[in-house]
Design a binder for these strands. Structure first.
Lengths: 244, 244
DNA sequence: ATATAAATTTAGATTAATCTAAAAATAAAT
DNA sequence: ATTTATTTTTAGATTAATCTAAATTTATAT
């Protein structure tokens, strides 16, 4: 008699525990989101495999921590993982990553367009805002901003379904002598670089002409607006242009 | 020779460790902020002492967890704590709490005013947004919203220095028969209650007249706009009015 | 005033995320 | 084809925040 009750209780418990397990698997922590985002961006929007060390580098953590987290992400179905062979995102992982990046970039637009931030101030705050969970919030924000396609640094904003519009941009470094281009993005988004660009009146949309290239140190002279300035190889390798 | 180098290195280390300790003390975690906020609100904006159990209740956690956290908060100088006697906030704790509440309420206004949310949808999201750290962000948000003084539920928004403007509101329950009032806030902010109010056309700013009170169950009939409705004691005890 | 109940704190464990140091696997170089 | 170097993984510890269960303190009731 008692044993029957006990057995049925145990079966109930088993179901409950299984159910809780499913819920836990469905939840995603802030840390997990950050790993997934790093894998997405290091792997060119989730298309290529990335190494443990590169993730550790990007997140300023240790390789052993990355291995631990990768295993958890693999258990939860966000990444494919073979020991020693690096990881790549599953469809599920790509969706999560694209959502986080979408939120990050929309918030950046909001900060610049509505709250008077400059493009070198928004990254840090968007790193926090990208983890806010509310579908309605992000869709309303998108509407408020009139459905922007690029963030203040020229990076494309994934749409609701995670698709991203690729633009055919190249690094200014690769532009030929005499060629013209429009500045459409930056690779380095650090405040230091962005402030340098502000100082020299280089902004998204600026018309740039390569006046001359110097073989010795790969520096170049470019025309920007009225004036001409000399920029280093480092600058040229961090500015994206669309060929005109 | 070697020993001198060793000793000077040890002294350096000691300084560094001390410095890191200071930094750790300065940082505040999301969890700590939530405890401090709960103590602030349970203790009527930090004016009275609150018990361990009431905090555990508010945060849906166990009393033993609260004790642990309280000790940490006391170490960091956010609360005054005598074992078995409850806690109250220090000046430092009050500032933190007021900042979090300020952010929470400003974000709620933003969601309703700019992103088309209704007052019963904003609490959960504001719980997330209140932890975003950026002074400029919150001040710009304040400006964008034209310096609101109350959130969508009628609760006052602390100013930059943490001061809060108290309004002389009373519960509708305490309004005399025949008396008139203006609805200025809600005590219960649950979606269920707020939706009830929406359904019966009761909103902030509505004119209310008490037509009659029923001794038996403390229900009352009130006039709201054109019509009259019967409300329960529970409703009357969760609506704030300003006497006219 | 003493017994009982309620609230609070301690002790010891657990979980997520991290670390260091050592071991194992892979890649590069002779 | 070995040796060496690099990368990655494992093993074992640590920290923050939590929990249960037991012990202690305070409050309440006879």
């Amino acid at each position: 008699m008692f044993s029957i009750i006990l057995i049925s209780m145990c079966l109930q418990m088993k179901k409950i525990i299984y159910f809780c397990g499913l819920i836990m698997l469905a939840m995603i922590t802030l840390t997990e989101e950050n790993y997934i985002k790093a894998i997405y961006q290091l792997g060119k929007y989730g298309t290529v495999t990335v190494s443990t060390n590169s993730i550790a580098d990007a997140l300023d953590t240790k390789a052993s921590s990355v291995t631990d987290m990768i295993k958890k992400l693999a258990d939860k179905g966000y990444v494919n993982y073979k020991p020693y062979q690096g990881v790549n995102l599953t469809q599920k992982g790509k969706k999560v990553a694209a959502d986080v990046v979408r939120k990050h970039r929309l918030w950046e637009v909001f900060l610049v367009e509505k709250l008077n931030f400059s493009w070198d101030e928004v990254h840090e705050i968007a790193e926090q805002l990208e983890h806010i969970k509310s579908e309605k919030l992000i869709n309303e924000l998108d509407k408020l901003l009139d459905y922007p396609t690029h963030d203040p640094h020229g990076d494309p904003i994934p749409d609701k379904s995670g698709d991203i519009k690729k633009t055919d941009k190249i690094l200014l470094f690769n532009l030929e002598e005499r060629a013209k281009g429009i500045c459409v993005g930056v690779k380095d988004t650090s405040p230091a670089f962005l402030k340098y660009l502000d100082k020299h009146n280089i902004a998204l949309g600026s018309n740039i002409t390569v006046l001359s290239k110097e073989d010795f140190d790969d520096s170049m002279v470019i025309q920007i607006g009225e004036g001409a300035i000399n920029i280093s190889q480092i600058v040229a390798n961090n500015l994206f242009v669309k060929v005109q």
